[in-house]
Design a protein around this nucleic acid. Structure first.
Length: 270
DNA sequence: AGTACGTCCTGATCGC
DNA sequence: TGCGATCAGGACGTAC
């Protein structure tokens, strides 16, 4: 369930649970429903048995377990979660892959929709190839932002969802950030002033950081960070039918952009 | 190249 | 209660 704050929270959770330093004993995959897509495939896999997790990295929504040789990429898709299991805990419903690491550490990749991806890479660079700078990385600067959006005629929101420009922003936080800076999601990017784009960058950062902090402060009863209602107070904009603009107190409207639903205020977002 | 759109897959929810 | 339609916090391939 992942945009940047959720994936970063997942990363910290796995580190906290002690994944680093353990070696792979076994990875059991669900019987493949379709070999070319979804979690059924660890694409380009090699035998990971005996490999040790050195660090757990993240860029945007992409997680990467750096091994003593190679990298296991983990992407949660729309509905993926990872649960560290207690001893003797049965595997949860919708488990697509079950990892057994040294010391009895087990974790389940749970993904009803089967859009999560496990993929083996030779290097971290390869795991992160095609991704722009992480939205919270200092390398994501106003200058970079302006250069990469310059002259683009597309509507701003679909561009924010383009991971090769900025990595980590998804449907929810795109709406949140655009609301903060009072930009319509349908605004043509080349019609947005440089000053406004700079404000947008700040708003993206603030939205993501606020959400990250909220998730950290609201773990579930087993210390897992990411099983939280999507419409809770990590957001200022409550993306659901019938909700109101917190500034104008009028109902939000929706728009389909790039196949995704945008929620916004037609009064203050221009 | 940049943009727009369909497709992957399955569960939950809504309206009749 | 039952059933079809619609919707989901993502990303990629394809076609203009």
């Amino acid at each position: 369930m992942p945009e940047l704050p959720e994936v970063e929270s997942l990363r910290r959770y796995l580190v906290r649970e002690g994944i680093v330093g353990r070696s792979v004993e076994q990875i059991e995959l669900e019987t493949k429903p379709s070999p070319e897509s979804g979690t059924g495939a660890i694409s380009g896999t090699v035998n990971l048995q005996g490999k040790t997790v050195k660090t757990l990295e993240r860029r945007g929504k992409q997680l990467a377990a750096v091994l003593d040789q190679g990298v296991l990429g983990l992407h949660m898709g729309m509905t993926g979660q990872v649960n560290v299991l207690e001893a003797n805990e049965p595997t949860p419903r919708f488990t697509r892959a079950l990892f057994s690491l040294s010391g009895g550490f087990r974790m389940a990749l749970v993904d009803p929709r089967r859009w999560a991806q496990l993929r083996y890479f030779e290097s971290l660079d390869q795991a992160f190839s095609g991704l722009g700078p992480d939205a919270l990385d200092p390398k994501f600067t106003a200058k970079y932002f302006a250069q990469n959006l310059k002259g683009r005629t597309a509507q701003i929101k679909p561009l924010l969802l383009n991971q090769s420009i900025i990595a980590g922003v998804g449907n929810i936080y795109a709406d949140e950030a655009l609301h903060r800076v009072k930009i319509s999601p349908a605004k043509r990017t080349n019609k947005i002033s440089a000053k406004k784009l700079e404000d947008l960058l700040v708003a993206i950062r603030e939205s993501l950081e606020r959400a990250l902090e909220f998730i950290q402060n609201h773990p579930d009863d087993r210390g897992r960070p990411y099983i939280v209602d999507a419409y809770d107070d990590r957001m200022q904009l409550h993306r659901k039918p019938g909700s109101f603009c917190p500034r104008c107190e009028i109902p939000l409207v929706t728009l389909k952009l790039g196949g995704r639903t945008a929620y916004y205020c037609s009064n203050c977002q221009k």
